Computed example of a mutant assay.
Amino acid sequence: MIVWIITAEIAFWIAIMAALFSRYILKKLKLSTFLFILVPLIDLALIVFTIMDLRNGAIASSAHGISAIYIGVSIAYGKTMITWADEKFQVWFLKINLNKKPLTGVAKGMKELKLFGQHIIAYLLGSSMLWLMITIVGHQEDTTALEQVWKIWSLVLLIDGVISLSYILFPTKKKTFLANIGL
């Protein structure tokens, strides 16, 4: 199962980079659009392979749970990841200076809250997928790994929420090291 997840992740980034290359270097907008359309199809394929694997009697594992997380994150953050890749492509390959200034203060806090909102969406989508898998498997002893993945992700979501809120409660006043390197 982990091979499918890794394959989906690699295919995801290849499709995005090929779409950006087609858009900016080849100037082929239709090809670029087609390649961007492949991105959600890759997620769909991972969903199908995960459910088929479980229906064929595979013991539910952490890898199946990770595939649910991958799908939720890919759907919730997909546009953000593509925008990030688009900006990096323009800077690295086209040598365009986008003059993006690191955010500080309330603006940084609002961005972090928006990203936390995306995390909540990813969590809801991925959790739905996890509980669907648990329902498909149906045996309590066979779903322990999936439940553990869900518990860990729930904790991660809680920690992310606290950190995101801290940017509003304690806004930064100047650039931090991470802001200086573009993170």
Rank of each mutant, 00 (worst) to 15 (best):
I2M: 14
V3F: 07
W4N: 14
W4V: 06
I6T: 07
E9T: 12
E9W: 14
I16C: 11
A18C: 08
A18I: 06
A19M: 06
Y24W: 06
L26G: 03
L26F: 04
L29F: 10
K30Y: 11
L31K: 08
L31G: 07
S32P: 05
F34I: 12
L35T: 07
F36L: 15
F36Q: 05
V39E: 09
L41W: 08
D53R: 06
R55C: 03
R55L: 14
S62C: 04
G65M: 03
I66T: 07
G72Q: 02
S74D: 01
A76V: 04
G78C: 08
G78I: 12
K79A: 11
E87L: 13
E87S: 09
Q90P: 02
F93K: 09
L98M: 00
N99W: 03
L103N: 00
L103Y: 02
V106C: 02
K108M: 04
K108E: 13
L115N: 14
L115E: 09
Q118M: 07
H119W: 11
A122G: 11
G126F: 13
G126C: 10
G126E: 03
S127M: 12
S128Q: 06
L132F: 13
I134D: 04
T135F: 14
D142T: 02
T144K: 15
A145G: 07
L146Y: 02
Q148G: 00
K151L: 12
I159T: 14
D160K: 12
S164C: 05
S166I: 01
L169I: 04
L169N: 02
P171H: 03
A179C: 02
I181Y: 12
